[in-house]
C-alpha cells in the first residue's frame, strides 16, 4: 500500500499519461481517490476508452471489478459539473499486471439512458449490467440478455433511483400470487 503511494507521488500515474496522450478529447475530468485514479469520460467514447484500458499492453486492465451507477439528481454540485447528467455509470477496473485500479465514470442523461454494453470486453459485465439496469434503468446497448436480475420480472420502476420511495409503492403489501408463475 505504502509503496504504491510513493510511486504515485513521484510521477503521474501511467494510466493518466496514456489517456491524456491518446484520448484527451474524451476526458471530462480526472481525480484521485484513496490511491485510485478516477476519470470521467464522454458517453460516446466510453467503449473506446474502456477497450483501450483493457487491450493496451502496458495498462492491461483485464479485470472488471464492478459496474454500477449513481443517481445524482440530488447532488447539485455534480449536476452542474457534468451538464446536468442525472446518472453516472461507473466502471471499476483492476490491472493484475500493474497491480493498480482505475475508476471510469460516464455521465448519462435522463432523456437518453442508453450506453454501450461492455459484455464484449469483459464477460463479467453481463450480470453487473443487468443489476445496473434493474436498479437504475440504464439501457446497455448490445447486451445479450438485458433482464432484471434482483427484482421480480414484473416489478415496475427502478428502486435505487432517488425518486423511488424507500418503503416502496405498496408492492410489498398487495402481492398477486396468481400472477407469479411458480
Amino acid at each position: 500500500m505504502n509503496e504504491e503511494k510513493e510511486v504515485e507521488e513521484q510521477s503521474k500515474p501511467l494510466v493518466l499519461e496514456k489517456l491524456e496522450a491518446n484520448h484527451a478529447d474524451t476526458l471530462l475530468a480526472q481525480d484521485e481517490s484513496r490511491g485510485t485514479v478516477v476519470v470521467v469520460v464522454r458517453k460516446e467514447q466510453a467503449y473506446a476508452v474502456l477497450e483501450y484500458l483493457k487491450t493496451d499492453p502496458e495498462l492491461a486492465y483485464t479485470y472488471l471489478v464492478d459496474v454500477t451507477a449513481v443517481d445524482n439528481s440530488q447532488m447539485e454540485s455534480e449536476l452542474i459539473q457534468f451538464d446536468y447528467a442525472r446518472f453516472m455509470v461507473i466502471y471499476q477496473l483492476y490491472s493484475y499486471q500493474g497491480q493498480c485500479r482505475v475508476r471510469v465514470k460516464v455521465p448519462v442523461h435522463e432523456n437518453d439512458l442508453s450506453i454501450s454494453s461492455v459484455t464484449g470486453l469483459w464477460r463479467a459485465a453481463n450480470w453487473l449490467e443487468r443489476e445496473t439496469y434493474d436498479m437504475f434503468g440504464i439501457h446497455f446497448e448490445g447486451h445479450p440478455d438485458l433482464r432484471r436480475i434482483l427484482m421480480p420480472d414484473d416489478f415496475e420502476g427502478h428502486p435505487l433511483r432517488k425518486d423511488y420511495p424507500l418503503q416502496g409503492r405498496g408492492e410489498r403489501e398487495r402481492f398477486n400470487f396468481d400472477k407469479q408463475n411458480v
Binding site: Y164, L166, Q167, G168, R172, F177
Partner: peptide, 12 residues
C-alpha cells in the same frame, strides 16, 4: 422497512 421486504409473513 424497505420496498423489497415482506413486512411479516403472516400476511400471506
Amino acid at each position: 422497512d424497505t420496498y423489497t421486504l415482506i413486512q411479516g409473513v403472516d400476511q400471506f
